[in-house]
Amino acid sequence: MGLRNYLIEGVSGTGKTSVCKELQRRGYHAINADRELAYQGDPETGEPLDGLGHEHHIWRVDDVRALVANHDEPVTFFCGGSRNFHKFIDLFDGVFVLELDWDTLNRRLDGRPEDEWGGRPAERELISRLHRTKADTPKTGTAIDATAPLTNVVDEILRQVTLSPPP
Rank of each mutant, 00 (worst) to 15 (best):
Gly2Tyr: 02
Leu3Gln: 15
Asn5Gly: 10
Tyr6Ile: 12
Tyr6Pro: 15
Leu7Ile: 14
Leu7His: 10
Glu9Ile: 14
Glu9Gln: 14
Gly10Pro: 05
Val11Trp: 00
Val11Asn: 05
Val11Ser: 04
Ser12Arg: 12
Thr14Cys: 09
Thr14Trp: 01
Lys16Gln: 07
Lys16Ser: 01
Thr17Leu: 08
Ser18Trp: 03
Val19Asn: 01
Val19Ser: 02
Glu22Ala: 09
Leu23Arg: 05
Leu23Lys: 05
Arg25Tyr: 05
His29Ala: 13
Ile31Glu: 00
Ala33Asp: 03
Ala33Thr: 07
Asp34Trp: 00
Asp34His: 00
Glu36Asp: 11
Tyr39Ser: 11
Tyr39Cys: 13
Tyr39Phe: 13
Gln40Ser: 15
Gln40Thr: 15
Gly41Ser: 11
Thr45Lys: 10
Gly46Ile: 09
Glu47Arg: 13
Pro48Arg: 08
Pro48Gln: 07
Pro48Ile: 07
Leu49Asn: 07
Leu49Ser: 08
Gly53Pro: 01
His54Thr: 15
Glu55Ala: 14
His56Gln: 08
His57Ala: 10
His57Arg: 14
Trp59Gly: 04
Arg60Tyr: 06
Arg60Leu: 10
Val61Ser: 02
Asp62Leu: 07
Asp62Tyr: 02
Asp62Arg: 12
Asp63Glu: 14
Val64Cys: 02
Arg65Ser: 04
Ala66Leu: 08
Leu67Ala: 12
Val68Arg: 08
Val68Cys: 11
Ala69Gln: 04
Asp72Cys: 14
Glu73Ser: 13
Val75Phe: 01
Thr76Val: 11
Phe77Asp: 02
Phe78Glu: 03
Cys79Trp: 00
Gly80Phe: 00
Gly81Gln: 05
Ser82Gln: 01
Ser82Cys: 05
Asn84Gly: 03
Phe85Asn: 03
Phe85Cys: 04
His86Tyr: 11
His86Lys: 13
Lys87Trp: 03
Phe88Ser: 02
Phe88Lys: 08
Asp90Ile: 09
Asp90Ala: 10
Phe92Lys: 09
Gly94Leu: 03
Val95Glu: 01
Val95Phe: 01
Phe96Arg: 08
Phe96Lys: 06
Phe96Tyr: 03
Val97His: 01
Glu99Phe: 10
Leu100Gln: 03
Asp101Phe: 06
Arg108Tyr: 01
Asp110Ile: 12
Asp110Tyr: 05
Asp110Asn: 14
Gly111Ala: 08
Gly111Asn: 10
Arg112Cys: 04
Asp115Cys: 12
Glu116Ala: 15
Glu116Gly: 10
Gly118Ser: 06
Gly118Asp: 01
Pro121Val: 04
Glu123Val: 10
Arg124Gln: 02
Glu125Ile: 09
Glu125Asn: 09
Glu125Met: 08
Glu125Phe: 05
Leu126Lys: 09
Ser128Trp: 14
Leu130Lys: 13
Arg132Met: 15
Arg132Tyr: 10
Thr133Asn: 06
Thr133Tyr: 00
Thr137Glu: 08
Pro138Ala: 02
Pro138Thr: 11
Lys139Glu: 14
Thr140Cys: 11
Gly141Pro: 04
Ala143Ser: 15
Ile144Glu: 06
Asp145Gly: 11
Thr147Phe: 10
Pro149Tyr: 07
Pro149Thr: 09
Thr151His: 15
Asn152Ser: 15
Val153Ile: 12
Val153Asn: 04
Val154Met: 05
Val154Cys: 06
Asp155His: 02
Ile157Arg: 09
Leu158Pro: 01
Gln160Arg: 13
Thr162Asp: 14
Ser164Phe: 07
Pro166Gly: 01
